[in-house]
Amino acid sequence: MANQESSTRRLIITLLRTEGPMSAGELAERIGITEMAIRRHIATLERDDLIYPTTVRQPMGRPAKVYGLTEEADELFPKNYHTLTLDLLEDIAKVDGSEKIKQLFDHREERLVQTYSDLLAGKTLEEKVAILADMQNRKGYLSKWEQKEDGTYEIVEYNCPIAQVSKLYPQTCSCETNVFRRVLGTDVNRSECLAEGGSCCVFKISDNQRQEA
């Protein structure tokens, strides 16, 4: 039953994506179930911030309520960003050479360091590790952190949103490690890497903070 309900909600989202905002009655007619059943699914989708209602005035009669998709719902549809990224990097390498690729990743590193440093300023190492892991988690890395018995810290990432890029351009991995090292102000070593066939990315973080030069 749960799978059937999930399938129905997926169909609702697909219809709204392909045909635009629709009323509960229109959705019920298209899917072939009762309007009462549709409204139950709509309530669940609204609760999950996947659809939102809009009141539309009509030439005659009462205003109608129609439903559209939120930005969150857009994430449910397949994306192929890595293909575009890889194509662009390949083109840059052909036009300007591999040195330009290095410059791009160096620039990315500096930008991330500046962004993270501003957010972590004045924090203890433990606070920095926790905030950094949370920021990575919000980007889709499925991150968690913990303090080990010897006082060191560890950040583990179970997903890599840019894995397809990292496999061909390992600079992305070294860039991430360098960013962690610089914003945490201590030694950071990657002991396992998804792009290199590991089951996750593991960052070993020293508890000896140092001053960035």
Rank of each mutant, 00 (worst) to 15 (best):
V165G: 05
K139M: 10
R181K: 12
G97I: 08
M36W: 05
Q103G: 10
A28Y: 01
T8P: 00
A121G: 00
A213L: 11
V183C: 03
T14E: 14
T14Q: 12
Y158L: 14
E146Q: 13
L119P: 00
T83R: 13
A2L: 07
R30Y: 01
R9K: 12
N3R: 13
L16D: 01
Q103R: 11
T172C: 14
K139G: 10
I205E: 07
T85E: 09
F77D: 05
K65L: 09
M22C: 08
G122A: 06
V183W: 04
Y52K: 09
L132F: 10
V156E: 04
A24Y: 08
L88W: 11
Y158T: 11
L86H: 01
L142E: 12
T83Q: 08
E109R: 15
F105H: 05
Q211V: 14
K144M: 07
L86S: 03
E126L: 08
D74T: 14
N137M: 05
K94T: 07
T55A: 11
L194C: 06
V165H: 02
V156C: 03
E127C: 06
A24S: 15
E46F: 01
S23I: 06
H41W: 03
I13D: 01
G25N: 11
I101C: 09
L45K: 03
D74E: 15
A133Q: 07
A24Q: 07
R210P: 00
D134M: 04
D96R: 09
A24C: 09
L120G: 09
E26C: 01
S117N: 07
S206L: 07
L88R: 13
L27T: 02
D207W: 04
Y153R: 05
E126S: 12
K123T: 06
P161K: 04
I92Q: 01
E192C: 03
T85F: 12
D106S: 14
T44F: 04
A213M: 07
R17M: 04
T44H: 07
T83Y: 10
D91A: 12
E29S: 13
K167R: 14
R62F: 09
A24R: 07
E146A: 06
L120E: 05
T152R: 14
Q147S: 10
I42N: 05
P63C: 08
A163L: 15
L125A: 04
D187P: 00
S117T: 13
L168H: 08
I205V: 10
E146S: 06
K139C: 04
S98I: 15
V179C: 01
E72H: 09
G140R: 03
V179P: 01
V188Y: 05
D96C: 05
E71A: 13
S206N: 13
